[in-house]
Simulated scan of single mutants.
Amino acid sequence: MTSLLKPIAFLSLLLAGAIFGFFYAWVCSTMWGLDAIDPRIAIAAMNGMNDSVRNAVFAPAFFGTPVALIVTAVFAKTAGRDRSAWAFGLAAAMYIVGAFAVTVAVNVPMNRVLLDTAVPDDIDAARAIWTGYSGRWQMFNTLRTVVSAGVLLLTGWGVFRLGAERAGG
């Protein structure tokens, strides 16, 4: 297991960076762009993006991040790299609670409601739907982004500690 510790640690870092980047892109561009256009188009575009995100490229980052972090924590603990193990374990717990669970409990159900909502022809009715959706969705996405940034930082710190830490330290 010790020989796999560094590769799995770097995989954890890669996946943590990928999921942080995914959530961050929604914060700093995608949602602002959708908020700036005709709400009828924004609703249709959001539904299209939500439908397309369930794919083999996204799945490893979203589902694999906590798995890789937990495996890395176990391998680090087994190798006597206690501080690193703590960092990877805490990163996994943060991700599961603050990003994965938030996605499953809040963002995905909101996406399903939006998908099931008929897009009205009336722009004011569409604006009311979009405004009600976008603000709340963005609040929870910002939470996922901040948590994922913390996960990335902890993972990076864990990788750094692997290089600095001696077994049993």
Rank of each mutant, 00 (worst) to 15 (best):
A92C: 07
N111G: 09
A18M: 15
V159Q: 10
L115R: 15
A149E: 04
V57L: 10
A91T: 02
L143Q: 04
G17E: 07
G156E: 08
A126H: 02
Y24Q: 11
G150R: 08
A36I: 06
F23H: 06
A73Q: 05
V67R: 05
M139Q: 10
A149G: 12
T65I: 00
A149C: 14
L114G: 05
P39L: 14
P39A: 15
Q138Y: 10
D35M: 07
S134V: 06
V67S: 10
L152C: 12
L69C: 13
A87Y: 14
T155P: 01
I96T: 01
R161E: 11
A61V: 07
A16E: 03
S52W: 15
R166K: 13
M139D: 06
G80C: 10
I19R: 01
D116N: 13
V57T: 10
S12G: 11
W32E: 00
I123E: 04
T30I: 15
V102Y: 14
L152F: 15
F58H: 03
S148A: 14
M139R: 11
V147S: 01
P66Q: 00
N55C: 14
L13W: 04
W26P: 00
M49P: 04
Y95R: 12
D124R: 11
T142V: 08
I70P: 01
L143G: 01
M94Q: 05
G156F: 13
V57H: 06
R127H: 09
R166M: 06
A99H: 02
M110L: 09
D122T: 03
G132N: 06
T155V: 03
G135S: 10
N141S: 07
I123Q: 10
A92Q: 04
D38C: 12
G17D: 06
R144N: 07
T30K: 09
R112K: 14
A125F: 03
A61Q: 06
G21N: 00
D38Q: 08
V151M: 10
A68L: 08
L34R: 01
M46L: 13
A36K: 05
V146F: 07
N141C: 01
F140N: 05
A126T: 04
A101D: 11
V102K: 12
V74L: 11
A99D: 01
F22T: 02
G48M: 02
G132W: 05
G98N: 07
G89M: 07
V113E: 10
A93K: 09
R161H: 00
A105F: 12
F62R: 06
A118E: 12
I43F: 08
S134L: 09
L153Q: 00
E165T: 13
V97R: 11
Y133E: 03
T131C: 00
N47D: 13
S84W: 10
A73D: 03
G80M: 09
W157V: 03
T117S: 11
